[in-house]
């Protein structure tokens, strides 16, 4: 491991716990519809207002991973020592449905930083915890997302 990578890793480790500024998004029905269309999910809960109204939800809701369209503000932390990146995976937890008209506030927190030797050389794994809160102060979901830079 080069000293450059070493010092970048140390700086990032010190930054664990850092939080981003909150950012608020408004959920729009058309955005939900286009997102559902893009992932190829024809579930009427995402695109048919009349059917959704008669469902247990009483109206349109967003698909589980729709919140990916609401990225948090970036973390005020040092840049990783590599420029290439990959998505490593996500752990979602769901608490409340997301509906058109909701205002969702997104905050992320740096939860973990690890260095591993991978197929493509040294890889830095960064785990961020993202919290999504609606206009009623309810946490609607959390996402633990792992990013890889290499």
């Amino acid at each position: 491991m080069t000293t450059q990578v070493q010092s970048a890793l140390e700086a990032l480790r010190k930054a664990v716990g850092t939080q981003s500024e909150p950012v608020t998004y408004e959920v729009e029905g058309g955005h939900i519809r286009r997102f559902a269309e893009a992932i190829g999910d024809p579930n009427p809960l995402y695109n048919d207002e009349a059917l959704a109204r008669r469902s247990r939800y009483g109206g349109l809701i967003a698909p589980p991973t729709f919140l990916r369209a609401f990225p948090p503000k970036s973390l005020p932390i040092p840049d990783p020592p590599f420029t290439r990146r990959l998505d490593g995976g996500s752990d979602w937890e769901y608490f409340e449905p997301v509906r058109p008209g909701d205002r969702i506030t997104v905050v992320q927190r740096l939860a973990d930083v690890r260095l591993r030797e991978g197929r493509l050389g040294p890889m830095l794994f960064t785990t961020r915890e993202i919290t999504y809160t609606n206009q009623f102060g309810q946490v609607v979901a959390t996402q633990r997302a792992t990013g890889i830079s290499y």
Partner: peptide, 22 residues
């Protein structure tokens, strides 16, 4: 990830509730 979400929501239907997805 979205397709795995659809796999589950299609299976559980309207009255099932997705709590965790990883």
């Amino acid at each position: 990830n979205a397709w795995l979400g659809q796999l589950i929501t299609d299976w559980i239907g309207e009255y099932g509730t997705l709590k965790k997805l990883s």
